[in-house]
Simulated scan of single mutants.
Amino acid sequence: MASSLVAGERLIRALGPGGELEPEKLPRKLRAELEAALGKKHGGGDSSSSSSGPQRLVSFRLIRDLHRHLRERGSTLYLHELLEGSEIYLPENPELVARLEKIKIQLANEEYKRITRNVTCQDSRHGGTLSDLGKQVRSVKALVIAVFNFIVTVAAAFVCTYLGSQYIFTEMAPRVLAALIVASVVGLAELFVMVRAMEGELGEL
Rank of each mutant, 00 (worst) to 15 (best):
S131P: 03
K41R: 10
L83Q: 07
A146Y: 05
V152P: 00
G44L: 10
T120N: 09
E110T: 13
A146D: 15
R99M: 08
V119M: 13
L90W: 08
K41V: 02
A157F: 03
Y78H: 10
A157I: 07
G45P: 01
E33N: 13
Y89I: 13
K41T: 05
I63T: 04
K141H: 11
G128C: 02
C160M: 06
L100P: 01
A32V: 02
Q136M: 09
R61D: 13
H126D: 08
R68P: 00
S86N: 05
L83H: 09
S50E: 12
Q136T: 09
Y78K: 07
G44V: 10
R71Q: 14
K102R: 15
T116P: 00
V140P: 00
V137E: 15
L70T: 09
T120K: 11
E84Q: 09
L90R: 10
K41L: 11
L96C: 04
K113I: 10
R31H: 09
E92H: 12
L62T: 01
V147A: 07
L57M: 03
D132W: 07
S49N: 07
E81Y: 05
F158L: 07
L79G: 11
G43Q: 03
Q122D: 05
I145H: 11
E84V: 01
E111T: 14
L107D: 11
E95Q: 15
